[in-house]
Design a protein around this nucleic acid. Structure first.
Lengths: 239, 239
DNA sequence: GAGTGGTCTAGACCACGCA
DNA sequence: GCGTGGTCTAGACCACTCT
């Protein structure tokens, strides 16, 4: 790893190298990476350069570093994943702990739009998961989740689909969601949605369309959530 | 600035010191900060420590650094400010350049909720600005903006209120918006909103409530935007 | 060419976690 | 007491900008 051929700064090369090895599964979630000195020796760079790469990985939440313990691949626990990706909060700003109720899981061929969003081949299979998220026994979000069958085989036989999905993706399939794009629109509850969320037809809802991506920017989930925002509010900070 | 008394790391102290001097106006927007070596000499620390502080400031978009030129206090231009804080995009993801049409600017006493959000005293005065944002001659957002009169004197006499406001705040009043919290709810267009946005009563809209803060976390604006999301979509990335 | 930030290195010392 | 990451320093060299 000399700098003679590379156009990229050394620490960037180290960064990419580490990303590759993490996504290859060289180190599992919650597993210890080698120490800074060990990585530096292995890659033939100084410890400071490795540190810069590791700090960048930490900033993107791909690893967690703890003084005295070491560097760990970020693990999606139910709490952390929920805190990071579930953006509905109470009026006072406090966070929710929603439970999931699975309505249905179907396997079918991907529709055209799903093919393009998830980069699927023609006629490729997907799972369509329909869930309700409940807070205090009251439904507040109706989700439709589309994931490629090839990436998540037999997920319809998993009992844990009612919990947070991202920990399941990571634990059972080795797929970690690294970031997501969300798009929000307003719409009215139709008859079916009204029934799912136990509210009146014509109630205004927000539709949150999320495309979730891995560390390699591969799109692995398309999730559409209809949220009743009378009790809970979608909250985000702009920096 | 020795480390004997400080509980904080040196670079953090430097960081806070620089924030203070920026918000005191020691350096104006788009003005050059001293070089790393000059700051290091002045503060009695090494250049590497100053660099760490400056990089942190850059990560929070408070300064911009350019190789060969120097470090500058971030300037809110119309384009940059719009790109950063205006989150509606077209269906294809491309960004909008909205124009503003001022409907009214009134001065009045702050209401109770405004007092608490903006940390105002009883009976303190605010401006209430009502604007429409237009794209291609079509109104898509109806805004109500509340700002303390004490911070923005005579803003009702400014011609530039129809443009992006944050550049105006910075240029005319020396107040820079550093970050914001947005909360989103769905609601139906009432008669007045329907008229403002030229759509039917009962059309579903998203209400985006934004609280904008300065570098010192002082809340300086409360903005409520009603957005027609049939043509444009609120877009945000979750990391 | 002079001055700026960007990269890379090497080494010292500190704070934390654990056996 | 050892190994980890966290801080701080000092110095070398590179890349970019301006004059």
């Amino acid at each position: 790893m000399k700098n003679t051929l590379g156009f990229q700064p050394l620490y960037k090369q180290v960064y990419e190298q580490l990303i590759k090895r993490i996504s290859d599964g060289d180190w599992k979630p919650s597993e210890n990476l080698p120490s800074e000195f060990a990585l530096a020796a292995e890659l033939g760079v100084s410890q400071g350069t490795v540190r810069k790469a590791l700090n960048a990985l930490e900033a993107e939440k791909l690893v967690e570093r703890r003084q005295g313990k070491g560097t760990f691949v970020t693990e999606h626990t139910n709490e952390a994943s929920n805190f990071r990706f579930f953006r509905l909060v109470r009026q006072d700003g406090s966070r929710l702990k929603p439970e999931g109720v699975v309505e249905s899981i179907k396997q079918r061929a991907a529709k055209r739009q799903e093919q393009s969003v998830l980069a699927l081949k023609d006629k490729e299979q997907v799972y369509e998961i329909r869930r309700l998220r409940m807070v205090d026994q009251t439904p507040c979000v109706a989700e439709t989740i589309i994931i490629p069958q090839a990436l998540f085989p037999k997920i319809d036989q998993q009992a844990a689909v009612s919990a947070s999905l991202y920990p399941l993706y990571q634990r059972e399939y080795g797929i970690s969601v690294a970031n997501a794009e969300e798009q929000i629109q307003a719409e009215l509850a139709n008859k079916q949605t009204a029934k799912r969320l136990a509210l009146d037809v014509g109630t205004p809802l927000i539709r949150v369309d999320r495309i979730a991506k891995t560390i390699n920017n591969q799109c692995i989930e398309w999730r559409s959530s209809l949220c009743d925002t009378r009790s809970f509010i979608y909250s985000v900070s702009v920096t």
